[in-house]
Design a protein around this nucleic acid. Sequence first.
RNA 1: GCCCGGGUGGCGAAAUUGGUAGACGCAUCGGACUUAAAAUCCGUAGCUCCGCAAGGGGCAUGUGGGUUCGAAUCCCGCCCCGGGCACCA
Length: 864
Amino acid sequence: MEQKYNPHLIEREAQEYWERTRAFRAEETPGKPKYYCLSMFPYPSGKLHMGHVRNYTIGDVLTRYHRMRGYNVLQPMGWDAFGLPAENAAMANEVAPAKWTYDNIAYMKRQLRSLGFALDWSRELATCKPDYYRWNQWLFLRMLEKGLVYKTTGTVNWDPVDQTVLANEQVIDGRGWRTGAPVEKREIPMYYMAITRYAEELLAALEKLPGWPERVKTMQANWIGKSYGVRFAFPYELDGRNEKLWVFTTRADTIIGVTFVALAAEHPLAARAAKDNPQLAAFIEECKRGSVMEADLATMEKKGMPTGLTVTHPLTSEKIPVWVGNYVLMAYGEGAVMGVPGHDQRDFEFAVEYRLPVKAVIKPVEGELELPLKEAYVEHGLCVNSGRYDGLDYERAVDAIAADLKAKGLGDKQVLWRLRDWGISRQRYWGTPIPIIHCAGCGDVPVPDSELPVVLPEDCVPDGTGNPLNKRADFVNCECPRCGKPARRETDTMDTFVDSSWYYMRYACADSPDSMVDQRVQYWLEVDQYIGGIEHAILHLLYSRFWTKVMRDLGLVGFGEPFTHLLTQGMVLNDIYFRKAEGGRITYYNPADLDIQADDAGNRAATLKADGKPVEYDGIGTMSKSKNNGVDPQELIDHYGADIARFFIIFTSPPEMTLMWSDAGVDGAARFLRRLWSYAHELVQNGSVKAAAGPMPELPKKLAEVRFEIHALLRQANYDMGRLQFNTVAHAAIKMLNALERAPRDADPAGDAVIAEAMSILIRLLSPITPHIAHNLWRELGYGEEVLAAPWPEPDPAALVQDEIELVVQVNGRKRADIRVPREAGHDAVQDLVLAHPSVQKHINGQPVKKVVVVPGKLINLVV
RNA sequence: GCCCGGGUGGCGAAAUUGGUAGACGCAUCGGACUUAAAAUCCGUAGCUCCGCAAGGGGCAUGUGGGUUCGAAUCCCGCCCCGGGCACCA
């Protein structure tokens, strides 16, 4: 054993050992409890960043911990390899997305290997390979057969200069990121997956996921958004026909207060009204400018214009004016809303702006409304000025009004979901081709299963002006499978969320050539622990749950939820810097490439090292490819080694907490592992550990205290392991070494026994976090062949028995003394000791003790 | 704008879920070792007041209220930061 800790040497040795022994190859072993530990697979953006290291270290800690607890563990890894950044890189460097992606995978795989993760690489997959995405296509066709996939139009961001569809991310302040041109909305045909058919189950099944964080379940429940309300119609006459304008409301109790109706700009009635009204047509056109993002729609200035049409109030028969409002969403409800300025703040502001009447029809249960209203009264209350509904509370009013509408055939109660169907068509090259052929005679024809996969050509180089597949005659031109005549292949590709909705199943049978999944999926799934960033709390996790239910209903798998336990890792943040070029194009710069000066007031000035010119600061955000603010961990690994990097990132913050990246403190991790090494080296030199094999002898008081401390720390560490708070497990390891270094050093066989036991505990406790040094020390100290095979340590109850306990004494809730009392001390004896304490005497100051609060074994509070 | 989190010393954090606030680590300062540096080891440390000292008191968990014998923890209002908002992944 070398005297100095040489992480690179021992890490290489340990990794070669694991490689040679195929230590992490997972086999289906019936009868042994299995544990499927899964970290979200990375997008191969080029290099790992700290968020990846954090994610995969957490997963590895859980993997190795469960392995030592006796589970048959699977921890796989793969690549979420389709996506937009590859196309952006292609435009910037004129390299094909495929080559860029495969090069990145090769580099990042080396980085992952150098971190020593216990991964079963034999199951590696990349979603851009035909043997993976063919099953996206295959399931798409099954869903099409079941009516779970359908085609309709959808709204996209359109860059009129590049003549291309833009991702939301590529729209900056309403303009295209490359051209700076104002973005327009455009309606195009798209394929949808009918996730709303599963809305009820996706919501209800959240309650059957006790292993998920509450916050994630709350977010999903709100996203699915079940609301109970009333769908009803305003009758009207147009072009000599009697028609109905439908709306949905959760506040039917306020229906008498309707003073206008507002339509989305895309509403068919708006288009009809605009036919002879150029001003309105222009306004509708204006509404179609700007991005499709909900955050933009919700924050923009509320604007409206009258259509000149009126409809009839279904209960009062009043004439109600119809407006077009830019804030009404076509995608939610009916694309039209009733306007009740008195009791909806948004309607109130709209009414004030356009001088529409405000009617108060709800009053508080206690007291009266102050009129005229200065803002909408949005609380539930009692109906007033509402004729026969006066005095009814919310529920009764809704019941009565729904019943009256129903009697007139103009409405009824209805459940409305906020969740929308999942549009999966992307007008992009680097994704799974949608397996459809367009035939002039037969229409949209599914590609037959026998012709799957529809293979994506890998040599296209996008240039930013639309999907390059459209220019590939060899891809586009084909025969109609139905009539055999020349036809055109669909060039849209699938949303990459399709890829990530089932990859965790494919790991179980990554080599299965003839089927999407096989019986091995039944062995490994569900995933016992899923680990990934909180940013995936809604979309990815919801789509995966949906996809699993679809596969279940197609008889492909026997379970309905993919992930039993979920750990949502906190984001790793870093500063963001950028420059905005003329024309609006934005370039982000990595903080590592900048010279940054900050003054005491927190202002900062940064210049690019390459040209010395200033760049702008854009606050902090998640490390990402798009904001170019990732920190490459490679420098850390090269300098300190994998164990120190892993220990540091585990040590520095609890897994679920957001972490602002800073490497301050990494020297502490390095110092700890060096101290551990030196301590172990000394033990090896003087042979204390080997000499101490055998049962624990009778211990003198000092050594019993050391042993107590070790076992108490272990008890706490195991508790923290169980609640996934790994930072304090690392803290416990440091405390153990501190305790050992403080322990009496005489060459006493009893002392050797305590130290030998403590080191075996410490090394096993550390082995999930710092597996290489643990592997090495376990062997050097002669505990066995490999720490991986050792059982997880449990505290010895006998070591945790104490003769004396410490009690805190408070007077009026403030700590005034500590006392040590024998463990068996009775209540009276303790009370005498407490009252005799001079500091307690002083603070009681002769006043009578009114109350004594006792927390057994911990605290006594005297109230005077 | 809407939904979900978070805010504790100079910094990362802990506090077993209402019971000693600041464990453990970083940085800082002082000391030891060394020709020197690095490394290593020892010590100190929230703020503030009284005291030569030993020691003792007060104030402190973003902010303002409230509940409680007792609040970082529970309740109400506000401020700031992060995540998501359906085409970034």
